[in-house]
Design a protein around this nucleic acid. Structure first.
Lengths: 166, 166
DNA sequence: TCTCATCCCATTGACACCCATGAAATCCCA
DNA sequence: TGGGATTTCATGGGTGTCAATGGGATGAGA
């Protein structure tokens, strides 16, 4: 398995530790993460984005389009890297969320881990339920756009799979 | 054989396990599924969609068109990946349906597996019977619209093994 | 010295593996 | 072609392992 999938809710203990779901750890292990996972406030949502080496490379990729030593690049670098924290995973697979990150997401006693394919998010469980409900609606709309039969090309092979679920 | 066809009804045991029909397992084996099958609530029906690696790639294809780091992408990712569960198949070909998925489909003691070609669905047997009855009505209406003469098959049951071993 | 982070160990509950059983389908041979 | 033998499959249950969680002990830095 090589993508983050599904959602899990775990508890924060008295020391502020919370277990990263085992399946996510497995993905991270494959992804390759030395020292810890990358974590930063999500853009446009009260949540935290996190991932391994591949996520860091995605960020690098965004910067790669801009010329070295340009003001734009520096600004974007600050915006993208400035809020990033590296979180260590202890031997039992747990991390500690710094205060600043917890505040941004409104996380208190429980954390909902949400797999998004190449990265995952951490949410306060209730807020996530609200967000999920809204996301489903939008996804339904999206699906209607694809509609019946309108096959959309995709980079890979997957010869002739139908457009969407359902 | 490379698509899911026919329907089977199997029982959930005391531990919450249910056998995936052997023919479906054969299709999955060909499809390639490392670690498990992908399963999520069906859209617009009280059922569960499931499939192997090919299904997962279909989801990837939907997301591939959206830019990294867009809020839109995150939302769609939540709807597509966030609801997905990866179900392991044990050595005897059985899976365990998590509570959340069983609720969505109203599944209690028995599961009806319905082949849909690329993927398959899991239903609570009664609900599926209702659904099937209605689907037949609609199919009949369609046939009437096409008019007389073009009768290409007996209007019967399309040879599925219904209610296999009860 | 106090606080915080890390390490280590214990508990518990869920799940995966293993084996057994019975029924149905298939094979095989007279 | 019929009937016994064999295989496949769905199902039940025991047991060991692993993940999530709680808490004590140790070490580093303020």
């Amino acid at each position: 398995m090589d993508r983050f999938v599904s959602t899990f809710t775990n508890k924060i203990d008295a020391k502020g530790r919370v277990s990263v779901p085992a399946t996510f750890r497995a993905v991270l292990a494959r992804d390759g993460y030395e020292g810890g996972i990358y974590c930063y406030p999500s853009v446009g949502a009260p949540a935290l984005d996190a991932g391994g080496e591949r996520l860091a490379q995605t960020i690098d990729g965004l910067l790669g389009d801009l010329p070295d030593y340009s003001v734009e690049r520096d600004e974007l670098s600050v915006a993208l890297y400035g809020d990033v924290q590296v979180l260590n995973i202890d031997q039992d697979g747990r991390i500690v969320l710094p205060q600043s990150l917890r505040e941004h997401a409104g996380i208190d006693t429980h954390v909902t881990f949400v797999g998004l394919g190449q990265k995952f998010q951490m949410w306060e469980p209730r807020r996530f339920e609200d967000f999920r409900a809204r996301a489903r609606h939008k996804a339904d709309d999206h699906r209607k756009l694809f509609g019946a039969g309108s096959r959309h090309r995709s980079g890979g092979d997957q010869g002739g799979t139908e457009g969407a679920r359902e």
